[in-house]
Amino acid sequence: MENMTETLKMTARDVSVFYGAKQAIKSVSIDIDMANVTAFIGPSGCGKSTFLRTLNRMNDTISGARVEGRIELDGEDIYASSMDVVQLRARVGMVFQKPNPFPKSIYENVAYGPRIHGLAPAKADLDRMVESALRKAGLWDEVKDRLNESGTALSGGQQQRLCIARAIAVDPEVVLMDEPCSALDPIATAKIEELIHELRGRYAIAIVTHNMQQAARVSQKTAFFHLGTLVEYGDTSEIFTNPREERTKDYITGRYG
Results as ranks from 00 to 15, higher is better:
172 P>H: 09
142 E>G: 10
207 I>T: 14
223 A>Q: 08
195 L>Y: 05
168 I>A: 11
186 P>I: 00
145 D>K: 14
164 I>N: 07
227 L>T: 08
162 L>Q: 06
184 L>I: 04
217 R>P: 03
206 A>H: 01
171 D>F: 03
186 P>Y: 05
216 A>Y: 14
195 L>V: 01
157 G>S: 10
144 K>V: 10
201 G>T: 12
148 N>C: 05
159 Q>N: 00
190 A>G: 15
226 H>P: 02
196 I>Y: 01
188 A>F: 10
231 V>A: 09
203 Y>C: 01
195 L>C: 02
181 C>P: 02
231 V>E: 14
162 L>T: 12
141 D>N: 12
184 L>A: 02
148 N>K: 08
210 H>K: 11
191 K>M: 06
210 H>R: 04
207 I>N: 11
182 S>A: 15
185 D>R: 00
142 E>V: 01
230 L>C: 07
141 D>I: 02
206 A>N: 04
196 I>T: 09
176 L>D: 00
159 Q>H: 02
161 R>F: 05
209 T>R: 06
157 G>T: 03
163 C>D: 12
214 Q>Y: 12
183 A>P: 05
155 S>Y: 04
220 Q>D: 15
210 H>T: 07
194 E>Y: 08
179 E>P: 12
203 Y>S: 01
148 N>W: 06
188 A>S: 15
173 E>N: 13
202 R>M: 13
185 D>H: 06
198 E>L: 13
177 M>Y: 02
170 V>I: 13
